[in-house]
Design a protein around this nucleic acid. Structure first.
Lengths: 209, 209
DNA sequence: CAGTTACGCTACGACTCGTAGCGAAAGCGA
DNA sequence: TCGCTTTCGCTACGAGTCGTAGCGTAACTG
């Protein structure tokens, strides 16, 4: 969730507690509005109406459109997993297809890209995106590499700093390619594309066709 | 420029001609406003004031914010070139560094991402982006491959359909990785990163470190 | 000079923004 | 049961932006 609450298990403060149901309804209404209206035409007043809460309630919990949409979209990426398919190539293909399926949702398309756009001028927002979305998924790269190393498909890493750099690079290459394919080229990241992508990623451009 | 004019060298229509200087001033003012205000806070009224034209003039030429920013940003990418550096790796590194430098401009960051975001809900806008930005740069991939094939660094393509698919894949991988590195990871695509990226792209993950 | 188009300017209704103020509701401890 | 505290829904508000219409003037053509 990562709302800006004062967290730290404040454990039963006095007064009326915030409605957890309202939180869920607001986030769901936000995703719904993203699908129907897109980012630019989404208004907080409309979201409040859809969620059945007052506009003021919404402003009491989120600072603005950006923060709200980050939370609404972040949940979509939490279901990503890396099932063990027996080989590095198969593992990559599997997780990339999952990622592509999520990115194919209209609420993910417009929501994620919009907050990334806004983050170019808002460092706090960028940090929030990194915490609640990006860094959480980087685990997939580390896990996949660990498995592949155990299988003997990749040489063991010696320099930990070098290893971290490579992990970041892989993440940028995988996520970047899928996003560009889906949003800019506007063509589906289907099985055939993923197969070709994985081949180039593993064997390079000179590899067998 | 790619404004929606009726083109086809309409050759001296009657009446007062549109001021070319106004076009240039508006696009320049748009880039300036993107730097200072970012996408979401950019208003067409402000752009008109900066450019020294009336707001109505602006609306007579562009349908809205999206179309205006596409034209304002497209020009930034036209200076990309592919100087012959003697090897495929060096060619790639050179053009990627150029691309990264452009993406580092604030007006490119916020402007490009914003219109891509809007294009998820506007097919006409996406097509406009493809025409005036994306497809124009795909030439770099084709040129680089042709050179590499001539040098013997890549096997000659036999199936033209397969060749086109691969070119699209490469473009998504290169552009996507640089964009993700620059905007999402928010770290510089400097020489070291580009060197590592190129190595993985050419030799794959299993290649020598 | 008449015809046509672009221009700058002003004004407008419609909409969204984010906030303030109010009374009522919901939880807590005494 | 009674206060105390916080949240809630609701209404209202000034400020700002949107996109368009109307008007008189400027620029160019035949």
């Amino acid at each position: 969730m990562v709302t800006g609450m004062q967290s730290s298990t404040s454990a039963a403060r006095p007064g009326r507690p915030r409605s957890a149901a309202a939180d869920a309804a607001i986030l769901e209404a936000t995703r719904e509005a993203l699908v129907e209206l897109g980012w630019s035409k989404l208004t907080l007043g409309d979201v409040a109406t859809r969620a059945g809460v007052a506009k003021t309630t919404l402003y009491r919990r989120w600072a603005g459109k950006n923060e709200l949409v980050v939370d609404a979209v972040a949940a979509l990426f939490d279901e990503l997993e890396l099932p063990d398919r027996g080989s590095l190539a198969a593992d990559i293909e599997g997780v990339v297809l999952q990622f592509a399926a999520i990115l194919d949702l209209p609420e993910a398309k417009s929501g994620l890209m919009a907050v990334v756009t806004e983050s170019t001028r808002d460092d706090a927002l960028r940090e929030r995106i990194r915490e609640s979305i990006v860094d959480r998924q980087k685990r997939l790269v580390l896990e996949g590499r660990a498995r592949a190393t155990a299988r003997g498909e990749l040489p063991p890493e010696t320099d930990p700093e070098e290893a971290a750099r490579t992990a970041d690079l892989i993440f940028d290459m995988v996520a970047g390619a899928v996003v560009h394919r889906t949003l800019v080229s506007a063509r589906p990241a289907d099985e055939e594309w993923v197969r070709n992508f994985t081949r180039v990623l593993l064997q390079g451009l000179g590899g067998p066709a």
